[in-house]
């Protein structure tokens, strides 16, 4: 498999150098592998997230004014370590406390939990929100629970706006929990992905087949099915999500993310169908994002996220944001 890398061992470090070179408004701690925002934090709550690398732009692409204060980058598909997360929390805390945004994977939970214990010992107030929005994980009692995927970025945007408005840690945390509970995702893969250090696809997927309910780490999905058309797949994704969650007439923020190896033209073809499927169900798309936002290296496929919104969430969503991957003004 041909890759644009120097070596698998230096890929993360090289990419962080690239982030620093491309985004002078950010500050990169190379030793601890943390991307920091240089936006003012004076006395407000700070947001720290992070996770395994390979999902770019998540999380470093969402660092900046109105969103994350710091993103800790782990090795590819491997969570960051407690000392990294602690270093991030220590630097961004202004005394108002820090919200950890954690995707529900065993490694992330354990490392953020250890980091929270260490930070609290140092007198830093920590609150943690866990995103577990992947409806593909059906049996959440007998598994590690639902994975955290696309809702993460919507939550980071909304909670980041609330922190920027000076909300207390308790209020930002409450809002983040609300968004986490109102979001659902479902994805499908047309190919596996290739972890650079391994050099071959993580699973075999024959021509003409797809994995429905795939995760974002090259782990196979729940079901292997013949490849569907955009119309069929959009129906399957929307059906899985709306069967799981009753949107009850609320408008949604919709995110259709590519997984890293799907052209934008296919994503737009998919989104046209998704939009029709939602219209048929009387679910109004209030805001939408289409593109590569939560990826899985070079995996072909997509993941749909719907978050039930209200006026407050939409107002926070519309607030200005200035990060490498999400940027708008009032």
């Amino acid at each position: 498999m041909n890759k644009l890398i120097n070596s698998p061992q230096t890929l993360l470090a090289d990419a962080l150098r690239g982030v620093a070179a491309a985004h002078r408004e950010l500050s990169v701690d190379f030793e601890n592998r943390i991307v920091f925002s240089t936006a003012s934090r004076e006395g407000r709550v700070a947001l720290v997230s992070g996770g395994g690398s390979g999902h770019e732009p998540l999380h470093s692409g969402f660092v900046g004014a109105g969103m994350l204060d710091a993103a800790c980058a782990g090795e590819i598909f491997t969570s960051p370590t407690p000392d990294q997360i602690l270093a991030a929390a220590t630097r961004v805390d202004t005394g108002s406390g820090v919200l950890f945004v954690v995707k529900n994977y065993t490694g992330d939970l354990l490392n953020f939990e250890m980091a929270a214990e260490l930070a609290q010992e140092q007198g830093i107030e920590i609150a943690t929100v866990i995103v577990a929005d992947d409806v593909a994980v059906e049996d959440s009692t007998w598994t590690a629970g639902r994975r955290g995927v696309g809702t993460t970025l919507i939550l980071e945007k909304v909670a980041g706006a609330a922190a920027a408005r000076g909300w207390s840690l308790e209020k930002v945390h409450g809002l983040a929990e609300r968004v986490a509970h109102a979001g659902r995702s479902m994805g499908a893969a047309l190919t596996s992905c290739t972890v650079p250090a391994v050099g071959r696809p993580s699973f075999d997927l024959p021509e003409g087949e797809m994995e429905l309910g795939v995760g974002i780490h090259g782990e196979p999905g729940r079901k292997r099915v013949p490849v569907m058309s955009a119309a069929e797949l959009s129906n399957a994704l929307v059906e899985s999500i709306t069967t799981d969650y009753n949107f009850g007439g609320k408008p949604v923020i919709a995110l259709l993310t590519g997984l890293g190896g799907t052209p934008l033209i296919e994503l737009y073809a998919m989104f046209a169908e998704v939009s029709d499927r939602l219209n048929e169900r009387n679910i109004k798309v209030a805001r939408s994002l289409v593109g590569d936002y939560v990826t899985s290296l070079d995996m072909a496929g997509c993941s749909l996220t719907l978050v039930a919104a209200d006026d407050e969430i939409l107002d926070l969503w519309d607030a200005p944001v200035n990060t490498p991957a999400l940027r708008w003004k009032d």
Binding site: S79, G107, N111
Partner: peptide, 9 residues
Amino acid sequence: SSVGGASGS
């Protein structure tokens, strides 16, 4: 601090 993931912790 060096393994990462669930295994590290």
